[in-house]
């Protein structure tokens, strides 16, 4: 931007110099055309994010150290860090992380897989669509947490009810995303497949599914985030171990340091999941322009 401005200024000077001996009528001054194409375009500035983080945390630490922020309001960042150190040294971190990761992996794998299968069926078969879309629309807004006591009766207080809760929570957004993605597959590609007399199965496998992939991936992002949110809910009942249980326990003890440590672990989990998903997406959707 600065470059362009500089350039046009230079051009102007040059022109003025060249035209110096040409007669100019009075009052006809040369001006540069004003640049008005700026803004409305974001570009990534890599350092701003970290700096904002550091400043926020520094202010927070200063505030809690001086008592400007009372210890009832927020814990000291350094104490939260200390809690992390303790979690790490005592091995409690993995004691909580491993059950949670297992629940998250099993539950969301079941939910997402079932969601994709049902979503594709809805996308392909009018009868399935007519039958299941209202059902899915009815399940979607139910707060799954409310069903937890029921799941305990159905699947037991052990891992079953936790898997079921996470699975159901990830299932519905996945269904909706998938059939939307199938609907959005370029019809001309399907028509092309038909025009070459490809079999129905080939069209589904080679055209519909790959074409729905981008939509399925964005559905996955949403579903997995919901899966992480539901981890806390799933560990409400009958879990002594797990990040969700850890957070709930910290909350019920009003232990802010542990509460924050747990929440940070969850958001880190979210970042990692998103990152891994991004890597897979880059590979699988390499064809996207």
């Amino acid at each position: 931007m600065a470059d362009t401005t500089h350039h046009s200024l230079g051009a102007q000077t040059e022109r003025t110099a060249a035209g110096a001996d040409k007669p100019h009528s009075a009052g006809e001054a040369n001006t540069t055309v004003r640049y008005r194409g700026g803004g409305f375009r974001t570009h990534s500035i890599f350092w701003v994010g970290p700096v904002v983080f550091v400043v926020l945390i520094a202010v927070w630490e200063w505030g809690t150290q001086t008592g400007f922020i009372s210890n009832l309001t927020l814990p000291k960042p350094s104490d939260v860090l200390g809690t992390f150190g303790e979690l790490w040294r005592t091995g409690t971190l993995f004691e909580h992380l491993i059950p949670s990761l297992t629940r998250f992996a099993v539950g969301s794998a079941m939910g997402c897989l079932a969601g994709v299968i049902i979503g594709v069926m809805i996308g392909l078969f009018s009868h399935v669509r007519a039958g299941l879309v209202p059902v899915v629309a009815a399940i979607f807004p139910i707060p799954k947490i409310a069903l937890l006591p029921l799941f305990i009766i159905w699947f037991g207080i052990g891992e079953g009810s936790k898997y079921a809760l996470i699975a159901l929570g990830t299932f519905t957004p996945m269904v909706v995303a998938t059939y939307g993605a199938v609907d959005n597959v370029d019809r001309t590609l399907i028509r092309m497949g038909q025009s070459f007399s490809l079999s129905w199965a080939s069209i589904v496998r080679k055209i519909v599914l790959p074409g729905a992939m981008p939509g399925i991936f964005s559905g996955l992002r949403v579903s997995l985030a919901i899966g992480i949110i539901l981890l806390v809910a799933a560990e409400m009942l009958g879990a002594r171990r797990g990040i969700g249980a850890y957070i709930l326990e910290a909350g019920s003890l009003y232990d802010l340091e542990r509460l924050f440590a747990g929440v940070i672990i969850l958001s880190a989990l979210g970042v990692v999941v998103n990152f891994v998903l991004g890597l897979i997406e880059d590979r699988v959707l390499r064809w996207r322009s």
Partner: peptide, 26 residues
Amino acid sequence: LTYVFQDFALLPWRTVAGNIALVLED
């Protein structure tokens, strides 16, 4: 009876060879 479409109708996730293979595989 084989079509050639205005908007090409190539599968973006397949290579040139893959797009041709598509109509032969069956």
